[in-house]
Design a protein around this nucleic acid. Structure first.
Length: 663
RNA sequence: AGCGGGGUAGGGUAGUCAGGAGAUCCCGUCGGGCUCAUAACCCGAAGAUCGAUGGUUCGAAUCCAUCCCCCGCUACCA
């Protein structure tokens, strides 16, 4: 029986900036998934490519004084190389600016027009009379029609966060020259998304993959589906058929890039791409980040359905990445760049391991250098690396080759069990479960080694010792095969150390059970995982910290403070337990305030004009508790009373607990 | 508000869809052992009223109901 054609894709990286570990949260598990499938005898086509269109790229290119094409070619090359460095190997890494994609996008758009799913409509759009251009998306600033906050053309980024359709924004200003834009009527094209509601409900019910993708999309489809404006006034992009002045919206041609990338691969390999995208039994698996569920579970299947293509069978959405428990943020510096990781000498497989083993694929993944170090040293080095090294070194020193002996039933069944768990983890799209299962086998290996005491046996009964070592080597072999999808390069090294023939990347999973041949020569093993030292981690933490501080400085220039900054203020309720005028001063009163701490605090307040010390006694007041201590009139003050106007004290409106934090 | 996702030992994290003995694994703590191995390894112990309350059940972390808290959707995004 022939295996059904299966294409696996990854969300396309936007060719407008460098790769960060957030990207990898999707790409590494996808690569791992494909590698395991291949070990199980399947042969999916794995494609991806650069997303190259849209206004942010045009805007960015202008600010860099280069053409959009130059910009995207630069990043396209960069992403292609970066993925290879990380062992994420696509069968084809295309570009949405390729001829393949221009052609395919136009063909699909034409198909949608022919089938009556696209209609023209006159809408009022911002037009800059000075620049003489219509202003799409981020070319225009203005006011949100829903909440009144400042907004960009395509979304209310500072207010309610709504997506804005072209023409919705009020008081538009041209982003290029800053002059006031006017509204002009123009014809644009809309995709009848509303016509696909019933189809989408049924489609989503049958969609495989992670529940976060399906549930989230179902929520949207059950609500109101609006028709979707699919054209923009730009030069850069895929021309809308029959209109030289319009390009299709970037979210039209981006997913079509999956098809185009498959076509590019098929053309090179002499294969038929239509089997993969139009065939009746075609299987399509998308790996995406949970931020683009809407596009992949709603727009995309509707487009495919409308144009007569095969539909996605599986959509796997990964959770987001946090850095040190903080929401991932480039502008706040909460980001770790892939180049920074690699340039500091870390092996890519360590990061692959971290991403695969941290948590369930759909949950938020926290990255911290500290945890990175722990995982490397305690799991990779101490458990896996140590087991492989002690086994191979012992074998090399005492036998020089793989010794004779029978593989114990317990060892075979443990490996068998692990293979079963690996298969199950792939069926559930849970790389962590895969790693946990295989690491349990490594643990078993250490335990086995320890309990059989080969270092004693070697003196008494060399033959029995050889058998133990052979069993241990069999476990190492299984580990190498089973972990290749997670750490392809490190496991290749281990494979070589075992003296195994053949390419580990092509060795099927069943080979893990095949008894290793006795007698083949062993060379001196090398250490597989080096210790990650404290200084190294401190250095990386410093890099991160400095970036965050640099970003905070630029934020401080604005009058607004962030919530994080506000949170730093320790404002608490307290009670005055002592109060007396400060001798020699007109306005100062020295008070002792109970803030629910061990002892009351001394605070100086300049309120003698409005209050007498007696009035203050026993009063409940509000205090900024973590103000830097200062000497006033020679007396230390550790905090500040909150008062308004000339010094009218703020007091709690109702009874509060002393020491309660103000929020 | 709505929708989506969470709340499990000191920290992190599995198990929840398909309900069953002592609730997983990693770090940390404590005690022992080993010495082949990168101060690595092994064995054991302490530590969790599984967010709260109520219900279903012989049996609930798991199913049902209600409630509380955190996060995302909602800058830059995979």
């Amino acid at each position: 029986m022939r295996e059904p054609p299966h294409v696996v894709t990854c969300g396309l990286p936007y060719a407008n900036g460098p790769a960060h570990i957030g990207h990898l949260r999707t790409y590494v598990p996808a690569d791992l998934y494909v590698r395991v499938l291949r070990k199980l005898g399947e042969n999916p086509v794995f494609v991806c490519g650069s997303d190259t269109h849209g206004t942010p790229i045009v805007v960015n290119a202008e600010s860099l004084k280069i053409t959009p094409k130059e910009l995207v070619e630069r990043y396209h090359k960069y992403f292609d190389e970066t993925f290879r460095k990380l062992g994420v190997i696509f069968d084809n890494y295309g570009s949405t600016d390729s001829d393949f994609n221009h052609r395919r996008t136009q063909a699909i758009t034409e198909a949608l027009i022919d089938r009556g799913y696209v209609y023209p409509k006159l809408i009022e759009l911002a037009y800059c009379p000075a620049c003489k251009i219509f202003l799409p998306d981020r070319y225009v600033d203005g006011t949100c029609p829903y909440c009144g906050a400042p907004a960009r053309g395509d979304e209310c980024d500072q207010g309610c966060g709504r997506h804005l359709e072209p023409g919705e924004i009020r008081d538009p200003l041209c982003n290029v020259c800053g002059s006031k834009a006017e509204f002009r009527v123009q014809e644009h094209y809309f995709f009848k998304l509303s016509a696909f509601k019933d189809f989408l409900l049924e489609f989503l019910e049958g969609l495989k993959g992670t529940s976060n993708a399906r549930n989230y999309a179902l929520g949207w489809v059950k609500g109101e589906l609006k028709d979707w404006c699919i054209t923009r006034n730009l030069d850069w992009g895929v021309k809308f058929p029959g209109r030289d002045d319009l390009v299709v919206y970037v979210w039209v041609d981006a997913p079509i890039g999956y098809i185009a990338s498959t076509e590019e691969w098929a053309a090179r390999e002499g294969r038929d791409w239509e089997e993969y995208w139009k065939g009746e039994n075609a299987r399509i698996t998308h790996f995406i980040g949970s931020d683009i569920v809407y596009h992949h579970c709603i727009f995309w299947p509707a487009m495919l359905k409308g144009a007569g293509y095969a539909l996605p069978s599986t959509i796997i959405a990964s959770g987001m990445v946090k850095i040190d428990e903080k929401t991932f943020s480039k502008s706040r510096g909460h980001v770790v760049w892939v180049d920074e990781y690699l340039d500091n000498g870390f092996h890519p497989d360590l990061l692959r391991y971290y991403l695969a083993s941290y948590t369930s694929h759909t949950k938020e993944l926290n990255f911290s250098w500290k945890v990175f170090q722990e995982k490397c040293n305690n799991e990779l080095l101490a458990i896996l690396g140590n087991f492989a090294y002690r086994t191979l070194l012992f074998a090399f020193k005492n036998f020089g080759k793989i010794p004779d002996g029978k593989i114990e039933e317990e060892v075979i069944s443990k490996i068998k069990e692990t293979i079963g768990l690996v298969k199950a983890s792939i069926d559930e799209y849970e790389p962590k479960r895969l790693v946990d299962s295989v690491m349990a086998l490594a643990n078993f290996g250490n335990s086995y080694f320890q309990s059989r005491k080969p270092w004693e046996l070697v003196k008494e009964d060399k033959e029995a010792c050889g058998e133990v070592i052979k069993n241990a080597i069999q476990i190492v072999k299984a580990l190498a095969i089973l972990l290749e999808p997670v750490m392809p390069s490190k496991m290749e090294t281990l494979w070589e150390q075992l003296g195994m023939k053949g390419d580990i990347h092509e060795i099927p999973i069943t080979e893990a059970l095949k008894v290793i041949e006795s007698g083949s020569e062993l060379s001196k093993p090398m250490i597989l995982f080096d210790r990650v030292e404290d200084e190294t981690i401190e250095r990386m933490q410093d890099i991160l910290q400095q970036r965050i501080e640099g970003c905070e400085e630029s934020v401080e220039k604005s009058d607004l403070i962030t919530y994080d900054q506000f949170e730093k203020l320790d404002i608490r309720a307290g009670r005055v337990v002592e109060a007396e005028a400060v001798k020699g001063s007109k306005k100062l009163i020295r008070i002792m305030v109970d803030l629910g701490e061990d002892k009351p605090r001394q605070i100086l307040a300049g309120i003698a004009g409005l209050y007498t010390p007696d009035e203050l006694l026993e009063k409940e007041i509000i205090v900024l508790a973590n103000l830097e201590p200062a000497k006033i009139f020679g007396i230390e003050s550790k905090g500040m009373l909150l008062a308004a106007g000339d010094g009218v004290l703020l007091v709690p409106d109702r009874e509060v607990k002393i020491g309660d934090k103000i929020r």
